[in-house]
């Protein structure tokens, strides 16, 4: 709203698995949160770039020192390379929206970045540092809060943002959420991947699988409850392509996140003022990439049955819900607010 020719607003959802950006010029992009540097001279000659980001990095991973620098939604601790990788992701996202970063007269960039609800202060400080030289002013907000703001679900709503690294919960009660209103769980997309990989190794030890294959299968065929059709994957066994029915393993792995997610949801609901609990129960909003698991909203509603029922819906655009919310916040903040948050 306070945007001028000299200012440019973006919302960024910096995710463990995928990162998205929504910009005030209408551009929206999502990339895989991977960064890779060529491992040697040969790789550099083949790739012809000093660094690769996103899908390009993933596709060329054998020639790269590949990093997935975000762990549970935040920069991994202790590794300078991971901090550099986060900067590369941020620069890449900014480049995608067409903002000329190196131009002398470029617009001032105001960025709202989503972080896990229970992120530590020092983790946030590191993220702010990583944004130096990328944006001019930065506001960090909890991911589910950004989603709620974007959807204008500001009163009597429970946002559950399930990404790869974390599941973030936030009860919206018409005020800026307190620590009491928010929770972060480590049980999210990555824990499903780990579980599925473990089950594959137990049930089909002969199958040659990797975590990247597992992630692709989950994104295509994940489900909870009754499967709509069998999940059959083709995997090499001693080099020979072989089909495996992994319906049971997929269901079991996906359902592994239900108990902690439902328990946390019920715990937060029980803390809402009694007269508003029903309103919140009927306004549960699922966001984040992992909310795309088939049957997830039904499973959540089933968990609510004991409390008298409720309604859970998946946002229309789970991948961009966080970055769109961030953009809305960035636009609504005044110039004086942004001045306080300059880098």
């Amino acid at each position: 709203m306070e945007e001028t020719n000299e200012t440019f607003c973006v919302g960024i959802d910096l995710g463990t698995s995928r990162s998205s950006i929504s910009a005030s010029n209408g551009e929206r992009h999502v990339i895989d949160s991977y960064v890779g540097w060529p491992v040697d001279m040969v790789a550099r000659k083949v790739i012809k770039k000093t660094v690769l980001v996103g899908r390009e990095a993933l596709d060329n991973r054998l020639m790269l020192d590949l990093r997935r620098p975000l762990e549970r939604g935040l920069i991994k601790e202790g590794a300078k390379k991971d901090e550099d990788a986060v900067q590369e992701i941020l620069r890449h996202l900014i480049s995608l929206i067409g903002l000329k970063q190196k131009s002398k007269n470029r617009a001032k960039l105001r960025a709202v970045v989503g972080v896990p609800a229970e992120a530590f202060r020092n983790s946030k400080q590191r993220l702010r540092s990583a944004l130096e030289g990328v944006a001019d002013s930065v506001m960090l907000v909890s991911e589910p809060f950004a989603v709620a703001y974007g959807l204008e679900a500001l009163l009597h709503a429970l946002i559950i943002d399930i990404g790869a690294g974390t599941a973030d919960f936030c009860v919206m009660q018409g005020r800026y959420p307190t620590e009491e209103d928010q929770r972060t769980l480590p049980n999210a997309g990555d824990s499903i991947d780990e579980q599925l990989l473990k089950l594959m190794r137990e049930h089909h030890p002969e199958a040659q699988t990797s975590i990247h294959m597992i992630r692709e299968w989950k994104e295509k065929w994940s489900f909870v409850g009754e499967p709509k059709k069998p999940v059959v994957v083709t995997v090499p066994v001693k080099g020979k392509a072989t089909d495996f029915d992994i319906t049971k393993e997929m269901g079991e792995a996906c359902e592994s996140i239900l108990p902690p997610v439902c328990e946390t949801m019920l715990d937060l609901l029980a803390r809402v003022e009694p007269e508003y609990q029903e309103n919140v129960r009927n306004n549960i909003i699922l966001a984040g990439g992992t909310s795309l698991i088939t049957g997830l909203s039904d499973a959540v509603q089933k968990a609510l049955a004991d409390l008298g029922g409720g309604r859970a819906t998946v946002v229309k655009d789970p991948v961009f819900a966080g970055s769109d919310g961030g953009l809305a916040l960035a636009r609504d903040a005044s110039s004086s607010d942004w001045e306080k948050l300059s880098l």
């Binding site: 202060r121 946030k124 400080q125 702010r128 930065v138 506001m139 960090l140 907000v141 809060f145 703001y149 204008e152 500001l154 009163l155 018409g174 005020r175 800026y176 916040l329 609504d332 903040a333 607010d337 306080k340 948050l341």
Partner: peptide, 18 residues
């Protein structure tokens, strides 16, 4: 006004962080 209140909360939280 309801959004403004939330926005102010977010800004204040960040100012404290800075």
């Amino acid at each position: 006004p309801n959004k403004l209140r939330l926005l102010k909360g977010a800004v204040q939280d960040n100012v404290d962080l800075v």
